[in-house]
Computed example of a mutant assay.
Amino acid sequence: MTIADEVAPNVFRASGTDVNVVILRDGDALTLIDGGYPGDVSAVEYAINSLGRSPEDVQGMLLTHAHIDHMGAIVSFHERYRTPVFTDPTEVAHARRDYLEQAKGKDFIPMLHKHGVLPWLLRIARVGATRSLSIDDAQAFGSSGPLDLPGAPVPVATHGHTSGHSAYHLPQHGVVITGDALVTAHALSKVDGPQLLPQVFDHGKQDTVAALDHLAVLNAETIVPGHGPVVSMHISAAVEQARGRSR
């Protein structure tokens, strides 16, 4: 268990199993962005408790995208407390599981001999990677500007990793929460620093690379990725590095 790490005023990053979650605080009210694997729910609860708050203080929850490693605590809190869940309008159907854009176990069979694959698969299997999760009443956020949620996050369309992937910008703090549109490490990657995830995870690499344009124009010097450590560098420089590594 880890406590929530404050990366900017009232912006906290906590760790699940090889994945990050973000908590925004405004007084006693919270917004949760992503939720780790199903087995990470207790870790997310612990992080919230470390702020002197409880899951009932979460006023709304945001998904960057509806992959299993980002849905765990989101689904749990929604079922227990009826906390509303919001995501990009395109991603709503994915969260409801009208379709599934996610790598399956068979996709990794040809990769079992590669760097980190088998230990990672065993690790995530223990925290529910093979479970089926959905959010039947996920809602589309309806604003192109700051959302009416604690922390006032601004959605940034970064479609590609999934058809409706969204990053979230906190312009008042110079922070961008990139989800899986740009990461800084992964168990299957041999390099550290800004990069795209291995292609096996992507719905469409061409769109994923193009989505970096929407990040590069933001005013942000703190990057909170879906996977890997928080980094302090301008997002445009991080995008340049990720583009170079994707070629």
Rank of each mutant, 00 (worst) to 15 (best):
A211L: 06
T31H: 05
S232D: 12
V7K: 04
A129R: 02
P119K: 10
L121M: 14
G226Q: 03
A14C: 15
G164K: 06
A93V: 04
A216G: 04
P119Y: 07
G174T: 07
H214K: 10
V7I: 15
V231G: 00
D98I: 10
G244P: 06
R126P: 01
D180V: 06
Y99S: 12
H78L: 10
Q172G: 15
P229R: 09
G160D: 08
V230P: 02
G145L: 11
P150Q: 10
I68A: 02
V154Q: 08
R96D: 06
G228D: 07
H169T: 06
F201H: 05
D28G: 14
D69H: 14
G60A: 15
E79L: 14
P229N: 10
M111V: 08
P84G: 09
A187S: 14
L212Q: 07
E45P: 00
Q195S: 09
A216P: 02
D40Y: 03
P119Q: 13
A95S: 08
I33L: 14
H165P: 02
I33D: 00
S232Y: 08
R13A: 12
A157Y: 05
V200K: 10
Q206G: 07
T184Q: 10
S166A: 15
D192R: 11
T130Y: 12
G16L: 04
L197E: 03
A181L: 03
G27E: 11
M71D: 01
L188G: 04
K205N: 08
N49K: 14
H165V: 05
Y81F: 15
A157S: 15
M1C: 10
Q199M: 09
L149A: 05
E101L: 12
D148K: 12
H161C: 06
D18M: 09
D5Q: 13
V176F: 07
V117M: 11
A8C: 11
G174I: 04
V183P: 01
M61K: 01
T208I: 03
P225E: 09
R131I: 01
S144Y: 09
I135L: 15
Q199D: 14
V58E: 01
V127K: 00
D136N: 14
H165W: 02
L112D: 06
P84A: 11
I177D: 02
I23H: 00
G179H: 10
D40M: 06
Q195K: 12
D180H: 13
T162K: 04
H214D: 12
G72I: 03
V21G: 01
A138I: 06
A66V: 10
E101R: 09
T158L: 10
H113D: 13
G151H: 05
S232P: 00
I177N: 01
H115S: 09
H186Y: 14
R13Y: 03
D26H: 08
L147Q: 10
A157P: 11
L63S: 08
K104I: 08
S166P: 03
F86H: 09
A103D: 07
I23Y: 02
H65L: 13
D148I: 06
L215E: 03
S143W: 06
